[in-house]
Design a binder for these strands. Structure first.
Lengths: 129, 129
DNA sequence: TCTATAGTTCATAAGTTACGAACTACAGGA
DNA sequence: TCCTGTAGTTCGTAACTTATGAACTATAGA
């Protein structure tokens, strides 16, 4: 029976800007990271449904791996599940403001999209579900 | 004779955070953007050599297209060449601090790498070229 | 030991990127 | 007008990356 390869967490000096940007340039990963920075300790399966989209378990697992190996999150096994938390304090030491500003930009964009959707719904007058 | 497709510059509201992060997650594109933000008006061919690496012309052209279509730069034909400039003021309006913080992080990383290289060279004592 | 739940790995299909060769675009002569 | 040189783009394809289902490992609890 083959054993599983251990989780990889780069040390803070091995984290790269390119890696961070690439990891957060994916909307699913950005959403996961945003959620984790609010409610630390969430598991992989908490994200099987993300903004009305179904993400397969194997895909999610890869996204968590990408975030982990870019140095953005830390994952720890706790019984049968995996608890995840951000490494934002560490990263903020090394690249001040980077993560915060990126997440803020994502927020601004989400708010704009929300407004755009509302406008469209409003112009349609009393939709039928 | 087939005519060439015109340059695409997204309007400011069509620029996305994902697009910006993805474009700047490539080290060549980040270097191009950094250079443009210092010396506006540089052309594509100014980057055929970038930090000791030769980049083929066709690859460079694609990198400029990526930056342009992500909304990061504006390109204008001027005679036989193409003048490029950043759209940082516009983007800064929409996503305050985003570009600046990313470029700052790239700088920090470049400075660290420089120091690491110097340490290595120093420990080797009087290399031969 | 059996079962259920959580997550990973692997194979591969689908998508993206890099780059040489051939092209378009323009300027400045002849 | 045609020719030549320089700047940049496009296209085909090889190399790389990402998404996903099926099969797996890992752990807890009965």
């Amino acid at each position: 029976m083959r054993t599983m390869r251990p989780l990889v967490h780069p040390s803070i000096e091995d984290i790269t800007v390119e890696g961070i940007l690439h990891a957060l340039s994916d909307p699913v990963r950005a959403a996961i990271y945003a959620e984790l920075s609010i409610s630390s300790g969430a598991t992989c399966s908490n994200f099987l449904k993300i903004s009305d989209r179904d993400i397969p378990k194997s895909t999610l697992s890869q996204h968590f791996r990408a975030l982990r190996e870019a140095g953005l999150i830390r994952s720890e096994r706790q019984g049968v599940e995996m608890r995840n938390s951000t490494r934002c304090e560490e990263i903020n030491q090394r690249f001040p403001g980077l993560i915060m500003t990126i997440m803020k930009a994502h927020q601004i964009q989400a708010a704009e999209r929300m407004r755009a959707t509302k406008r469209k719904q409003g112009s349609g007058r009393s939709r039928v579900g």
